[in-house]
Design a protein around this nucleic acid. Structure first.
Lengths: 144, 144
DNA sequence: GAGCAGACGTTGACTGGTCAAGTATTGAGC
DNA sequence: GCTCAATACTTGACCAGTCAACGTCTGCTC
């Protein structure tokens, strides 16, 4: 409890200050940016970042209002709406990533050797819900 | 994000079903139960479980309403109020602990060898905010 | 082609938590 | 013994997310 909450709070404050987004916003943008065509079905994005569909609706509301993301419709299935990252979104993600990944790296490299980081990544990767989180973790095995 | 959220959700559902409390409630009760005299200053309890003071007020509101906890006043300092676990609270904690720790053990023993659990405990124990979390983790090094 | 189960997305009501501001109390310095 | 900064706690306004219910659309089956 304590550790996770504390870290999330600190990362949030960090991102908030540098880019006015939350950790979850960051995750969503990151996912979109690396998705094919810079877009994903809202439902897929939701499960990817670990939110419910309605949670994703709220989150994207905010990102849309900030013009970081926009809606696109699917021609073959009228039920689905894509969330697509905009150029503004990509730019902000880039900025945010610098400070966020730096903070992340700081926390970890201060406390763990590269080998230990690897160990954590493999071990935690076995947790339910982590599935392909590890593969998308920037600098998982890298980072000297 | 995903993994933590998913696990917390599942543990919450579990506890909710068995005892109508959340993971955070459980943490607070556990802390109180093992504190000297079954009580702690609200402020200390808050930092112990990783909440703000106001968060703790809200949380204890609920536990008090359910009679799992009660207020006690400090004779030497009128500012402080203790949160004290009641007999009802201890009983419920006992029940909840069975199912919760079982679920916890299941998740971990399915995925990690005892040695790996130890490794995780030591590594994660270095995270900020984890400080003495590990020491209070039931069955950290035990559990075959 | 009508009916129906199932998927996608949104909405309203709620929860668990935050932050900022306020009250009451304490203790140290003068 | 007054003043003032600091501490303990509560409260109101808010935020991020959940769940349950709903509308819409799709695709299968008959």
């Amino acid at each position: 409890m304590g550790a996770h909450a504390a870290m999330t709070r600190s990362f949030n404050a960090d991102l908030q200050a540098s880019s006015a987004i939350t950790v979850t916003d960051f995750e969503a943008l990151r996912r979109l940016a690396s998705a094919e065509g810079g877009r994903m079905r809202r439902v897929d994005l939701a499960t990817a970042v670990g939110l419910t569909a309605s949670g994703m609706t709220r989150l994207l509301d905010g990102l849309e209002r900030a013009a970081l993301v926009c809606k696109e419709h699917c021609s073959s299935d009228a039920r689905v709406t894509y969330a697509a990252i905009t150029d503004t979104g990509r730019a902000l993600l880039h900025t945010a990533a610098e400070s966020h990944l730096e903070a992340l790296a700081a926390i970890f490299s201060e406390r763990f050797s590269p080998a230990e980081v690897d160990q954590l990544v493999t071990l935690l990767g076995r947790l339910p819900g982590a599935e392909e989180d590890a593969s998308s973790c920037p600098g998982a095995a890298a980072e000297g």
